[in-house]
Simulated assay, not measured.
Amino acid sequence: MDGFRIPIGDWVDAGVDWIQANLGGVLDAISVIVTFLVDGLTAMLLSVQFPVIIIIAALLAWLVRSWKLAIGTALSFLLIVGMNLWVPAMQTLALVLMATIVALVIAIPLGIWSARSATVGAVLKPILDFMQTMPAFVYLIPAIVFFGIGVVPGLVATVIFALPPGVRLTELGIRGVDSETVEAGQAFGAKSGQILGGIQLPLAMPTIMAGVNQVIMLALSMAVIAGMAGADGLGKLVVEAISTINIPKGVEAGLGVVLIAVFLDRVTAALGTPAENKDSLLGVLSKRRTQRRRAAADAAAEAARIHEETEREKVRRTSTV
Rank of each mutant, 00 (worst) to 15 (best):
Arg305Glu: 06
Thr35Pro: 11
Ala303Asn: 02
Val123His: 11
Trp11Lys: 09
His307Tyr: 03
Glu276Asn: 14
Val151Asn: 00
Gly82Ala: 15
Glu276Pro: 14
Ala70Glu: 03
Trp62Val: 04
Pro206Thr: 12
Ile30Arg: 06
Lys278Leu: 12
Leu201Arg: 05
Ile174Leu: 14
Asp265Glu: 09
Pro206His: 12
Leu59Met: 13
Ala157Trp: 01
Asp17Arg: 04
Val284Pro: 01
Gly111Gln: 01
Leu218Val: 15
Ala241Gly: 02
Arg292Ile: 11
Ser179Lys: 15
His307Leu: 03
Leu69Gly: 02
Val262Phe: 13
Ile199Phe: 10
Ile247Lys: 00
Val182Cys: 13
Val26His: 04
Thr100Ala: 14
Ile306Leu: 03
Gln200Trp: 10
Val251Gly: 00
Ile149Gln: 13
Gly166Leu: 02
Gly148Cys: 14
Thr119Met: 07
Leu237Thr: 00
Ala269His: 05
Ile216Arg: 06
Leu60Lys: 08
Gly40His: 10
Asp10Trp: 11
Val12Asp: 07
Ala162Pro: 03
Ala29Lys: 13
Ala296Arg: 06
Asp2Gly: 06
Ile245Ala: 01
Ala296Met: 07
Glu302Ile: 04
Phe147Tyr: 15
Glu240Asn: 12
Leu196Thr: 03
Ile141Thr: 13
Leu23Pro: 03
Val212Arg: 01
Val16Leu: 14
Glu240Ser: 13
